[in-house]
């Protein structure tokens, strides 16, 4: 068996719908190493968001085993940061109080984590926005605050469910760069980086961000391709114009649409 930070072995999930049982995921096996940035792409309804929640222990898998950091996942696991498609900030709390929410929920003293929260906000370009209410910030800024909230307790694993899906294209590309910067692709050694599992609809986004892209097929969700992205880091805007970038996009596109078998090369 592989020894990664996350190990999935023959994971499957069937849920009961009104019309009968629906197989959402089938035979998912993968190993994700510490410090790896892995994207999950696939069509709507391929179960990639469900898989993310299964890894987090928020939904039970009906088959197979999931281990994170050597422990079998049977219930929600604490050492993760989660970012969703919507920022889901609490409307009545200031940005700083929102970033500190995990401390309160986890029963830690928020006062002690305040300097870290302020430092995270500064790193995310939100210095001075701490006392503002969420509705006073743009969608992109709210999502950055949500990222700060996910990073507050310094989790080794970051689970992101289409975090930029609700943003406009330009903000989205900016956020991708921002995420890589905060992730520390320039400043941190590979082992010191957080492991990221990133769900997205966008192939270029997945290629731009990731060390590895896992392509999923729909109904039931299976792994259709698992592709290493050997592009140099730190990634830059110019990278998007290179031939290598385009070739990887095409390869993933083919794997996704099943047009040729060319996408399954590892």
């Amino acid at each position: 068996m592989n020894k990664g930070l996350i190990d999935l072995h023959e994971v499957g999930m069937t849920y009961q719908a009104a019309s009968g049982p629906v197989e959402a995921l089938a035979g998912i096996s993968a190993s994700i190493g510490a410090g790896e940035f892995v994207s999950l792409v696939g069509p709507s309804g391929c179960g990639k968001s469900t898989l993310l929640r299964i890894v987090a222990g928020l939904r039970p898998a009906t088959r197979g085993t999931i281990t994170v950091a050597g422990r079998t996942v049977t219930q929600p696991i604490p050492d993760i940061g989660m970012v969703f498609q919507a920022p889901i900030l609490l409307k009545w709390r200031s940005i700083l109080e929102n970033v500190l929410l995990p401390a309160e929920l986890a029963g830690k003293d928020p006062a002690k984590l305040r300097p870290r929260a302020e430092q995270l906000l500064e790193m995310a370009g939100l210095a001075g926005f701490g006392p503002k209410l969420p509705r006073e910030l743009s969608g992109g800024m709210q999502q950055r605050a949500a990222l700060c909230r996910a990073l507050l307790l310094d989790p080794p694993l970051l689970l992101m469910d289409e975090p930029f899906g609700a943003l406009d294209a330009m903000t989205r590309d900016d956020m991708a760069l921002e995420l890589l910067r905060i992730w520390g692709e320039k400043d941190l050694a590979r082992e010191a980086r957080k492991t990221v599992l990133f769900v997205t609809h966008s192939i270029p986004e997945a290629v731009f961000l990731s060390d590895r892209v896992i392509v999923m097929s729909a109904r039931p969700g299976r792994i259709a391709a698992d592709l290493r992205i050997d592009l140099p880091r730190p990634r830059t805007v110019e990278l998007r114009a290179t031939e290598a970038f385009g070739r990887l996009n095409l390869e993933l596109f083919r794997a996704l649409t099943g047009k040729t078998g060319g996408g399954t090369t590892l």
């Binding site: 929640r53 987090a56 928020l58 929600p76 696991i77 604490p78 993760i80 989660m82 969703f84 919507a86 889901i88 609490l90 929410l101 995990p102 929920l105 986890a106 029963g107």
Partner: peptide
């Protein structure tokens, strides 16, 4: 309450 918000609560075992 948004289900994602409740998931956030569950992650931290609140």
């Amino acid at each position: 309450v948004e289900p994602d918000m409740l998931d956030l609560g569950r992650v931290f075992n609140a």
